[in-house]
Nucleic acid binder design. Structure first.
Ligand SMILES: [Mn+2]
Ligand SMILES: [Mn+2]
Ligand SMILES: [Zn+2]
Ligand SMILES: [Zn+2]
Lengths: 142, 142
DNA sequence: TTCTTGGATGAGAATCATTATAATCCAGGA
DNA sequence: TCCTGGATTATAATGATTCTCATCCAAGAA
């Protein structure tokens, strides 16, 4: 069993990333407990260990880590608000790379299983979903 | 059959919203063709009819329309980036109101049906989804 | 050990979407 | 016609994120 230090050096090595002190502490801050964290939360945690770290370094390295698969981005977010007039319940297909959104038809959700998994009190009246993947253009390019 | 003017005046009336000229043209710009539109796109389209309109009015009224159900917001977006260290494929449950994100377990996706619906070339290797609803607190409050 | 060098970092400016503010406008009722 | 409250406008402010660039530093060369 390896320490989290060793684990990070390993992952960094495999991704071709230099295993700097800052990257080490950022990674460990995210891995310290399961959860979904913002750059500011990570910044706050990391500063306790390394007060001189810059917020830009947090952003730089979170992006790097996500790109190299060391971390996962929770919600691929479009940069801007999008609205539509189609009020018929329907789902969306979102490209994680270029953020393009298109409609997707079909009943591919098992609502019974879904509501069985939802926590008590969570309102799933008409649950809409977003499915993430890579659009044709992006999967061709990469 | 009613004109789109009449349709909007109807909807506005039902929602208790004043049917102003600006609201009329904003609504019609979104309804002119099916699609997912940003405030800037709508602004550009509307200015051709009503050059004096303000971008703030676009934002104000898109929000109002979404709140009153005249339009749908395509992707409920968190204000900030969120990352996590859990790389095991899993889905998320997102509150459309407070944007809280939590993990949801379980196999409630029919991948066969899903990939049958996806457009040609869309890469759905390991499709992750976000399910939208209202968390306990928000569904209690409202 | 000292030198060299390219990538990494830190500080702060810049950007972009969105929201807030406050003055003005205006439709509908008295 | 005059009033009034909500709507609109222009612009400032905000907040997250990215950019710029001077500085730093670790690892390899000499
Ligand atoms: Mn749609
Ligand atoms: Mn998660
Ligand atoms: Zn794409
Ligand atoms: Zn909520």
């Amino acid at each position: 069993m390896q320490t989290s230090h060793e684990q990070f050096r390993d992952l960094a090595w495999k991704s071709g990333l230099a295993a700097t002190h800052q990257r080490q502490v950022i990674y460990e801050a995210v891995m310290a407990a399961p959860g979904h964290y913002s750059p500011e939360q990570i910044y706050a945690a990391v500063r306790r260990q390394t007060p001189s770290i810059s917020l830009a370094t947090i952003y730089n390295n979170l992006r790097l880590f996500v790109e190299h698969g060391l971390l996962r981005e929770v919600s691929p977010r479009t940069s801007t608000l999008l609205v539509e007039g189609n009020l018929e319940p329907h789902h969306h297909l979102v490209c994680t790379r270029c953020k393009a959104v298109q409609d997707i038809e079909g009943d591919f959700i098992n609502y019974k299983k879904l509501s069985r998994q939802a926590p008590r009190g969570f309102d799933l009246t008409q649950p809409l979903v977003e499915v993430f993947g890579l659009c044709r253009r992006c999967s061709a390019e990469k």
